[in-house]
Design a binder for these strands. Structure first.
Length: 53
DNA sequence: GTAATTCC
DNA sequence: GGAATTAC
């Protein structure tokens, strides 16, 4: 199960579950895990929620 | 710039 | 098609 993460929505920090999670890493470098979130107002927010190995 | 992914 | 995301 996806944990909830703190995301900024409408100037407010709220805990949301990511709609989608994937790794974003250039070749030969470390990179990050990106989460895609949707705020109640409909705004879409991407945030790094972890580091890739 | 690069990486993947989604939204407008 | 371009923007956005992180950090190296």
């Amino acid at each position: 199960m996806e944990k909830e993460y703190e995301v900024e929505c409408d100037g407010q920090s709220m805990k949301l579950k990511p709609v989608k999670v994937w790794m974003l890493a250039p070749k030969g470098r470390r990179g990050v895990i990106i989460g895609l979130f949707k705020c109640p107002g409909g705004k879409v927010v991407r945030k790094a929620i972890g580091k890739a190995e």
